[in-house]
Simulated scan of single mutants.
Amino acid sequence: MFKSPKTVLLVLALLLSSSWNVQANGKKVRAGNRSDAIILPSIFPELPSAVINYVRPNLLYGLSRYAGPAGMWHPKKGFFVQSTNPSFYGLNFPTTGGNGLYFDLLITGIDVRDLTWEPVTHEGITATVTNVVANDHSIPSEDRGKVVARVTLIGPYAGRRHSFWKIDKIPKPRLPQTFELVGRHIGTGDEVVKYGFVLKQWFVDLQRTFKYSGYTAGLCNRAGYEMPRNKDLTNASIESNGNNRGKYSKYNSYTRYIDAGFFSEWGCMRYDNTAFRALPYWSMRTSNIDKRDIVSATYGSIGWPDVNSLERFICVSNLKP
């Protein structure tokens, strides 16, 4: 069939021209001859009405005490789309990101294999969409094995090129930045569906485990980043989490909530092909930055280290207001 509307219009014009020439030059034209009424099959089928219902990060620890509010989080599907209005993309997941993290767009109304997506890049961060067979262990059995559109974030990270003790500068994106992903029909190129979000913070795992000391306290700063506070990582309610107030958990663990901490959004840090690990990370206490805590990247819980604690270092591009 014809691949584009322009091709169709050209063919239609040629057919009409041929019809008129036959009538004008023919020896006999019967009254009522309607050879100019050319009947063609439907050449402008309606595009599918596609809808993104959910965006799905790791669902592990998304039930019961970890589940977010009903209008935001579905324990078996992920986050609800909060807005399709570009002016309010900042309400959507994710507001935080890190190299190699990914989430799935759960789309109905079209086979995702009929869509094509262009990568979007801002400030050295690229969001790409590829079709994958989703077999992550956190996905419910009824959805496992289905083809989905998977969004992967690629951006600055702390590479192994650094020596164990020496940390070089890591490129730091200027945030916030708005990302709009547009799914177009693979045959016509027409826009079918789109999804937008605003990244406000970028996290890097230094891939190192240290005791907290005068030297290691400055690792993030030497990389050009900040050491996160508890509220940058979790909405656990062990302390008043400032901007996360109203978004906090009732427990010493995260609840899945947009814009309420890195782990609160992304959940347990069990993602393939990323440096982040489901382990405790050093953090500053929100209410007293001179105090150091540890935050679990499995549950989002806040703990108190002892003098011999060896934990991983995570850094953030900018602190939450």
Rank of each mutant, 00 (worst) to 15 (best):
R277W: 03
T95P: 10
G267L: 04
R292N: 08
S138A: 09
G90P: 01
R256C: 15
P305C: 07
T108W: 01
N135W: 05
T216M: 09
P94H: 05
L10G: 03
G196A: 04
T128D: 05
I289M: 10
V51G: 00
R245K: 06
R56A: 02
N252E: 14
S283W: 02
E46V: 03
G90Q: 06
S42K: 12
D168R: 12
V182G: 05
E118A: 15
K77E: 04
G246F: 05
A127S: 07
G246T: 01
Q177I: 00
I186F: 09
R56L: 09
F262W: 14
N135E: 13
D232M: 12
I52H: 01
D293R: 02
F313A: 12
V81I: 09
E180I: 03
M72C: 09
P57L: 01
G196E: 00
P75R: 02
R245D: 15
E46F: 05
P156M: 06
A127L: 05
V22T: 02
D168N: 14
C315P: 15
I52C: 00
S317F: 13
T84K: 10
K146E: 15
V120K: 01
H185F: 06
L115G: 04
G62Q: 03
V51C: 01
P173D: 14
Y271Q: 03
P119V: 13
L199P: 12
D36L: 14
S249N: 10
T108K: 11
F103D: 00
P176A: 05
A149Q: 08
S317R: 06
G214A: 14
S4I: 08
F2H: 15
P86Y: 13
F313K: 09
M72G: 02
V193Y: 00
L60K: 11
P94L: 11
R312S: 15
Y271C: 04
W20I: 14
Q201Y: 06
A13K: 10
G214M: 09
T126C: 07
I289R: 09
N99S: 07
P48E: 08
N85W: 11
S296W: 04
R174D: 09
Y257E: 12
R65V: 11
Y248N: 15
G261T: 15
G26D: 14
R292L: 07
G71N: 10
L153H: 03
I258E: 11
L12F: 05
S240Q: 06
D168A: 10
V112I: 03
G124S: 13
L206R: 03
S317K: 11
P57H: 01
L206F: 02
F203C: 08
R174K: 05
S64K: 14
Y102V: 01
L175G: 02
Q207L: 03
T116L: 15
